[in-house]
């Protein structure tokens, strides 16, 4: 039995109401959406906010809509199930629909929201544990301690960014819309994350993610999502790969490959130096091998996840190759 620490609960009915409560309880609250990340963490006494402000009543943030110019906006309170089952998302944003449908198990996808997934706390075998466990080993940088058990000499927490929808959204060029008592701003999702696992986003405590905006996708783009996990029915990723390949009109010649991997360090990793490898070429076995090689060079799994990092590194190029082959076949 894991008891939650005490807090006061607020259930505003509108965005304005939520922001008012945030101002009133400044520095003493956290937002809660589906609760599927926050509540286990609170049960482990990783967070003990005196106030919880629930975003569930903000029905205005539950939507999937096509925008004028052809982009798509998804409200932050939209559940993962709704995204995974949406005809629009499956047709226009297949890698996102796949990623949403691969989060945890069915019940959690019915509860968990897109905004909560984007804000998912980083994860580490030395962190997602009860107080009893963490105390026995000695605390770490991310919570109450002064050393890191993963990188012993490290000065920065490298707990794993583990959200499934995020790498897919980054390859699609998505941006997050934020609202706070001070006003609204928009940030490219790629710039939303920092390399510090203690707090790996640039979101201020009182900022609410209202929506995720995905720009119109290039014609000829084929995107897919691959998730490696121990139990395919329920687990967090131990490695994940979001891919978007842009083909020219002939459906064979490649213009560009976007490749973002996660479940490594504290932010999703974009695999760079691919443009020169793929531009103007067909994705032959040789070109695919060159892309997979870049993934192997640039992805560095750590012991923050309880599965051999060497193994994860060796399988990374294999899954990248298969993802590329799927994109070629999808033509």
């Amino acid at each position: 039995m894991l008891r939650l620490p005490r807090f006061q609960y607020h259930a505003p009915r509108s965005l304005t109401g939520a922001l008012e409560l945030a101002s009133r309880h400044a520095n003493e609250f956290m937002y809660i959406a589906g609760g599927t990340d926050l509540l286990p963490n609170m049960k482990h006494l990783l967070f003990e906010p005196p106030h919880l402000i629930s975003l569930r009543g903000l029905r205005e943030l539950d939507f999937i809509e096509v925008q004028g110019g052809g982009g798509i906006r998804i409200g932050a309170l939209t559940t993962l199930t709704r995204i995974a089952e949406s005809d629009l998302a499956r047709r226009e944003l297949p890698s996102l629909a796949q990623a949403a449908g691969l989060v945890a198990g069915p019940q959690i996808r019915n509860m968990g929201t897109l905004g909560g997934n984007v804000c998912l706390d980083t994860r580490c075998v030395y962190y997602n544990q009860t107080l009893f466990w963490r105390k026995a080993l000695g605390y770490c940088l991310k919570k109450d301690g002064s050393q890191c058990h993963v990188v012993q000499s490290g000065k920065r927490c490298v707990a794993a960014h583990s959200a499934d929808t995020v790498p897919a959204l980054i390859t699609l060029g998505a941006a997050v819309e934020l609202q706070s008592p001070r006003g609204a701003r928009e940030i490219r999702l790629e710039d939303f994350f920092s390399g510090d696992g203690v707090k790996n986003t640039v979101r201020e405590a009182d900022e609410i993610i209202t929506a995720v905006r995905i720009p119109p996708q290039p014609r000829g783009r084929r995107a897919n999502y691959t998730k490696v996990r121990i139990r395919n029915s329920i687990d967090f990723p131990i490695l994940s790969i979001a891919l978007a390949v842009d083909f020219r009109e002939d459906g064979r010649t490649c213009d560009n490959v976007e490749l973002v991997m996660t479940a490594l360090g504290s932010k999703p990793r974009r695999i760079g130096n691919l443009h020169g490898v793929v531009e103007g070429r067909a994705l032959t076995a040789e070109v695919i091998q060159a892309v997979a090689h870049q993934a192997h060079r640039q992805a560095h799994p750590l012991t923050n996840i309880n599965v051999d990092p060497e193994w994860r590194r060796e399988v990374a190029p294999v899954y990248v190759r298969r993802a590329l082959e799927r994109a070629v076949r999808a033509g």
Binding site: Y9, G34, G35, T36, R56, T81, Q107, I108, N110, M111
Partner: peptide, 21 residues
């Protein structure tokens, strides 16, 4: 999943749902 209940027609986990929610 041992705590699964049906909420508004969908299975959800009652151990990760606040009673007030």
């Amino acid at each position: 999943g041992a705590c699964t209940v049906i909420v508004d027609g969908r299975p959800e986990l009652s151990c990760l749902t606040l009673a007030l929610g």
